[in-house]
């Protein structure tokens, strides 16, 4: 099991250090970076370390290691105040980690008797296979389940469901229920030409459209998780 993960995000690379000894984690990181150096070259890095306490020296060491591989450490994301202070000392930006576990008392909506645990898709993280392309209108009662990304060219009507391990792209109207990142991946996104789902789920989050407000505009929109909440933005604004 990899305790170092490297992900591409909108703002550059996100490097997450998991459990384990720092030295071995750094060795692993170095190995992964050198293996794919040209791919990451010139990028900015956000380093996510969770609760881990890191000293100024240790952060400096990581920064140097990244610099050797021609990527620049910009931000340190941590829950530990000491680590954030050390990072600031080196002139780096700091952030707290977004919550990754749902708090039982504050779910997306209070009306579920118990917290939502995604388990229906029977998928595990990292199992993203190939994307699936669906070229038809999904009608009530129809369901698409796929471990990877799903692209629907057509409408998803109310009563239809799309459940994907990865992202969901609807080239049409989305009226039904979709679940992106169904294995619990909060990084997944949903976008649609007209995003008006009955219910929208990403990872462990659930959102419903606001009540009593009929939509007037229908513009392409994208939904994603930010700081533990599902946010919907117009496609234009999100770029």
């Amino acid at each position: 099991m990899a305790s170092v993960s490297i992900k591409g995000t909108k703002n550059g690379l996100l490097v997450t250090l998991g459990q384990g000894e720092l030295a071995s984690l750094l060795a692993e990181l170095e190995e992964r970076l050198s293996g794919t150096a040209s791919f990451f070259k010139g990028g900015q890095v956000a380093l996510q370390v969770g609760q881990r306490q890191l000293s100024v020296e240790e952060i400096g060491h990581i920064k140097a290691l990244l610099a050797q591989n021609e990527v620049a450490l910009e931000t340190v994301i941590s829950e530990a105040p000491g680590t954030r202070a050390a990072a600031r000392h080196l002139g780096l930006e700091t952030k707290r980690s977004p919550r990754t576990e749902p708090r039982p008392e504050r779910r997306a909506e209070e009306d579920f008797a118990e917290p939502f645990v995604p388990l229906r898709a029977g998928l595990s993280r990292g199992e993203f296979g190939e994307g699936a392309l669906v070229r038809c209108t999904l009608r009530s009662g129809q369901v698409i389940r796929h471990p990877g990304h799903v692209v629907v060219i057509g409408d998803v009507n109310a009563g239809a469901e799309v459940i994907a391990g990865g992202d969901i792209v609807i080239w049409g109207r989305l009226r039904g229920t979709v679940h992106a990142g169904a294995a619990g991946d909060d990084q997944a996104i949903v976008c649609a030409l007209d995003l008006a789902p009955t219910q929208l789920r990403i990872g462990k989050r659930i959102a419903r459209p606001p009540e009593g407000k009929p939509r007037r505009r229908s513009i392409p929109e994208i939904a994603f998780v930010q700081e533990g909440r599902i946010i919907v933005r117009s496609w234009k604004a999100s770029r």
Binding site: E109, D111, F112, A113, E114, Q199, I206, R208
Partner: peptide, 27 residues
């Protein structure tokens, strides 16, 4: 209540979730 459904009766009978999880409370 259509936009509050997460689990349904089949999820309960097939053991995917507990009964309490599938019950939607009317506000």
């Amino acid at each position: 209540l259509e936009n509050r459904i997460v689990y349904d009766i089949v999820d309960v009978t097939e053991g995917y979730c507990r009964l309490r999880q599938a019950l939607i409370r009317d506000k």
